[in-house]
């Protein structure tokens, strides 16, 4: 007579055939679990080699410029300088930190030695000020620096509005739908919006976005952050960074269908 197997969880004895079947099924399940882990891991798009030197402070010396957004121009060598975009702690811009340092004085043209956390990728470098700036800077006096910018005429670009702090180092990925909420928090918190474009050879270009007058723009651009778009505006060559001056109402969202199938 065939043994009538019946499983009772709290019992100390368990039906043999059922347990044998179970062992087999769990083994298969274990292989499936490992297989799914491997597939999900392999399915990820490649991450960029952007860097955020979390936990490590670097001292940079340079001259402060405020337009279009606060940055530190540092001399690297004879005839070579770099414009380091300044950012605040967390999802905020550098304005508060600079206000604490300079109080009522105008930071424009001031030479300073600043300690902060470096963020860099693709030849673009940014510096995050500490949340408490006291003790992280040394004022070196005023300079007579003049910013030379070149107006380059009108241009039409396709790409995406991103926040540079996350994009150039702090988060991966830092574009598209996944990151959209964070980018909105950052840009509305004072971090300068940047437009990123990519050509067919996978070469990217970056443009600091301002309004038509060259003034900072934050909340007015929120609706376009993290979505593919087309913009038109005036291109300005700032030297190390490019700038695009536009009217946010003229930004067109591109509703392209999937390129998968």
């Amino acid at each position: 007579m065939e043994k009538d197997e019946f499983y009772i969880g709290y019992s100390t004895e368990h039906p043999v055939k059922t347990m044998r079947f179970l062992k087999f099924f769990i083994t298969i399940l274990g292989i499936v679990v490992l297989g799914v882990a491997i597939i999900f891991a392999l399915g990820q798009k490649p991450f960029k080699n952007s860097t955020f030197e979390l936990g490590s402070l670097t001292e940079v010396e340079g001259v402060l410029h405020l337009t279009p957004y606060p940055f530190l121009r540092t001399t690297l060598a004879d005839g070579a300088s770099k414009d380091i975009l300044l950012l605040g702690f967390g999802k905020f811009g550098a304005t508060k930190g600079l206000q604490k340092i300079f109080e009522n004085k105008n930071p424009q043209g001031m030479a300073i030695r600043l300690n902060g956390t470096l963020i860099y990728y693709e030849g673009k470098t940014l510096l995050q000020l500490e949340s408490d700036v006291s003790g992280t800077y040394t004022l070196l006096g005023k300079t007579n620096t003049v910013s030379t910018i070149k107006e380059m005429g009108n241009v039409s670009l396709k790409g995406e509005v991103i926040d540079p702090k996350c994009y150039f180092g702090v988060m991966k990925p830092a574009f598209g739908k996944i990151h959209r909420s964070c980018a909105i928090r950052c840009i509305s918190g004072g971090i300068p919006p940047v437009y990123v474009t990519m050509n067919a050879q996978n070469e990217a270009s970056y443009y600091l976005i301002t309004d038509e007058k060259g003034e900072p723009i934050h909340d007015a651009i929120i609706d376009y952050v993290g979505k593919p778009s087309e913009i038109q505006g005036k291109l300005v060559d700032l030297g190390d960074w490019m700038q695009i001056r536009l009217n946010p109402n003229t930004i067109k969202l591109i509703d392209q269908n999937s390129a998968i199938y």
């Binding site: 490992l34 882990a37 491997i38 392999l42 990820q44 490649p46 991450f47 988060m171 991966k172 990925p173």
Partner: peptide, 22 residues
């Protein structure tokens, strides 16, 4: 444990530029 280790090992060997939080 199998899942988390498997995922981490494959990511670190094929896509090492990941961030820990991601």
């Amino acid at each position: 444990v199998i899942y988390l280790l498997g995922f981490a090992v494959v990511t670190f060997t094929t896509n090492a530029n990941t961030s820990l939080e991601t």
